[in-house]
Amino acid sequence: MSAQFLYGGAGILLFALGLWSLLVHEALLRKLIAINIAGGGVFHVFIAIAYRGDTAPPDPVPHALVLTGIVVAVSATALVLALHRRLEQAEEPAADAEVLSESASASSAAPPPRTPAERTPGTPHPETPHG
């Protein structure tokens, strides 16, 4: 029982730590690490409550839930990073173009941002709303 609380408590601390970092830090990568640590904390709580001492076998149900959670977390991480990369490309057209023209070897330059040559349905206009 005490081990469950010790480990489960650590999970809760990790969740709070991740949440704090998510709210405080601006850089996307730091937010992503924060959310993964918070997630690790929640998974840790599940693993801790599945543990039933060294004699009884652990509860397999929370284990399976955590496995699912890990896969979901890595899927989300991959999507977040892809969106972030796309955002970087979109935000730095000028800088990248310079890199392209300055460096003689085109092969070493970053690819230019995607220009929508495809027909784009709808044409949203930038207006940054204030929440």
Binding site: K31, L87, T120
Partner: peptide
């Protein structure tokens, strides 16, 4: 899907918020 900067930025935030909510 539009690939516009505003859309990507907004949905990046939406995704993070959603993840936090689910967790």
């Amino acid at each position: 899907l539009t690939g516009k900067r505003e859309a990507i930025a907004a949905n990046l935030r939406y995704l993070l918020v959603g993840l936090l909510g689910s967790l």
